[in-house]
Structure formats: C-alpha cells, structure tokens
Design a protein around this nucleic acid. Structure first.
Lengths: 138, 138
DNA sequence: TAAACATTGCAATACAGTTGCATGCCGTTT
DNA sequence: AAACGGCATGCAACTGTATTGCAATGTTTA
C-alpha cells in the first residue's frame, strides 16, 4: 500500500515525503472530499501550512482538485485518472450534505449540457446539488 | 422610483430606512450580483456591518439571494418574483467571468434535470459556469 | 414624557487562506 | 570532510471575509 502511494507520487513528479504519502494515503481512503481544516484535525502530526502546501502541490500536479462546496469552504478530492496537471476533467456533480456537511463526488452523474446566451464563453462548470446524502437519509 | 423601492420593502415587511432603500435601489439597477465588499465601496455612506445586516435581512425576507461565485466569494442578487422568504426558487445558472470577476444570473438558462444516485435527496442546486462574459469577450 | 424597540456604528473576534523567513535535511560538488 | 545548493517543514505574522457584542442614536408606542 505504501509502495503504491509512493509510485503515484513519483508518477506525478512529486517527491514522496512522509507527509505527502500520509496525505495521499488518507485522501485515497476517503470516500468524500475534505477541507484543509478537517485534514489538519485528521492528521495532527503536521502543521497546517505544510498540509496547505501539500494540497497545493497535489493540485498543481493534477493529483487532487479543488471543490467549492457551495457553502464557502474549499475542499479537496482525489482526481479521476483522466486528470492531468493544469487540466482537470472535473465535470461531474458534487453533492453537499446539509446533515453531515460532507461533499461527495458523484462521478457517474455528468453535468448535462447547458446552453449559454450569445457571446458567453464557457471554460469550466461546477454543479453542486445540496440535500441529504444516502447515509444521513436513513 | 424611490416610491417603488419603499413599496417593495414594505411588501416584504422590512422597515424602509434610508440605508435599506439605497441598497435595494442599487441592487435593482445592478445587472449582475455584488459582494459585500464591493457594495461597501459603491455605497460609502454606510458602515460595512450595516450593509452586512441589511443584506442578511433582505435575504431572510426573500428579497435577495446568496450566490457562491465559485471562487469562494459570497455575492448577492435580487430575487426573481417567484421567491419568498425562506424559500428561494433559484434554479437558474450563474456565470462567473474570469475577466471582470462579475457573477451574472442567467435566468433564462434553466439547470437541466440531474439524476442522483439512490437515496440522495435533493434540496437545492447551484450551477456555476465559468468563462468570459459577453462584454469581456469583445 | 417615558418606556420599548429598531437601527446603526465602532470595536473586537473568528476563521480560512496565504506569505515570509529561519531551520533542518539531503545529496552534490569541491 | 567541508561547503554549497535546493527542498521540505514549522512558526509567526498578515490578509480578507464573515460575524458578534455593545453602546449610542433614532423611532414608535403607551
């Protein structure tokens, strides 16, 4: 497992330090996305700034992507395989649960095509659905 | 014009103070949405906190709605007629322009239907398209 | 008029995001 | 081995937005 994480980092040209392997390992296990603050609480061994820079590095190298959770908090999640550095293919839907405050990627739910008014040029899209997730609904 | 603004406020059971009439008037003229900070810069006559509370009141009474602009900034825009206090029908698309940093409501562009995985309950949706707006594209 | 309530401004706090700088580690060069 | 460079990390500090507390002022009501 550690081996696998190390290989992932190297394949993105990221120096596999202990910190970075721990963070990546944590993110890979994670079912949803996570904010910097929550990551800090989960991995107490490292400084907030270090985690901040780790996530920033991961994002720049196309390992994770940022999600605006629709409540003003930035969260991070592992990219799909199809992502590359500087070019995220992140057109799936994100789901924010009002109950557990988690933000889930719904990779199987594509954002439908949207027609824009004339002369509007699209570059990215974000679709956030808010409600109650399948765990909290029970 | 002032009269109209006053009537709007009263119809939402908001005391029409000078401050509130100015803010509402400004929002009605506005083609896009605005952040608290930008509103503060536009209407220098009032304290930031007062404007903050004004927008909060407006939102609670269903006069404006919050928009997450997708870059972590909260903005406000006048609601459509169909909105009521505590129940915003805000299912249209928002467009964030990377060039002028403005966030536009595109009321004629409906969010297409999205199928969620089983047991996910939808309450609200936000679709933010980012790119270049029709003014900046020229 | 006095009491009650609403509105506003100032100060202070909370918190996410971010930057600067010093330190320590590691591999390379001389 | 010693000196050098680059990278990773931690601490402190700063920025900007959001938010609350409290006092002062203004307005309504009994």
């Amino acid at each position: 497992m550690k081996q696998e994480v190390e290989i992932m980092l190297k394949s993105k040209e990221i120096n596999p330090t202990v910190n970075r392997m721990l963070v990546l390992d944590y993110l890979l296990e994670l079912k949803s996305s996570i904010s910097l603050t929550d990551l800090e609480l989960s991995l107490e061994s490292f400084d907030r700034v270090t985690l901040y820079r780790t996530l920033k590095t991961f994002e720049e190298r196309g390992l994770v992507h940022k999600i605006e959770d629709g409540m003003g908090i930035t969260k991070f999640a592992i990219c799909q395989d199809s992502c590359e550095a500087g070019m995220h293919h992140d057109l799936h839907v994100h789901f924010y649960c009002h109950s557990c405050k988690q933000t889930f990627c719904l990779p199987k739910t594509q954002i439908p095509e949207v027609k824009l008014p004339e002369n509007y040029q699209r570059q990215e899209m974000e679709l956030i659905v808010k409600g109650i997730c399948s765990v909290c609904v029970k």
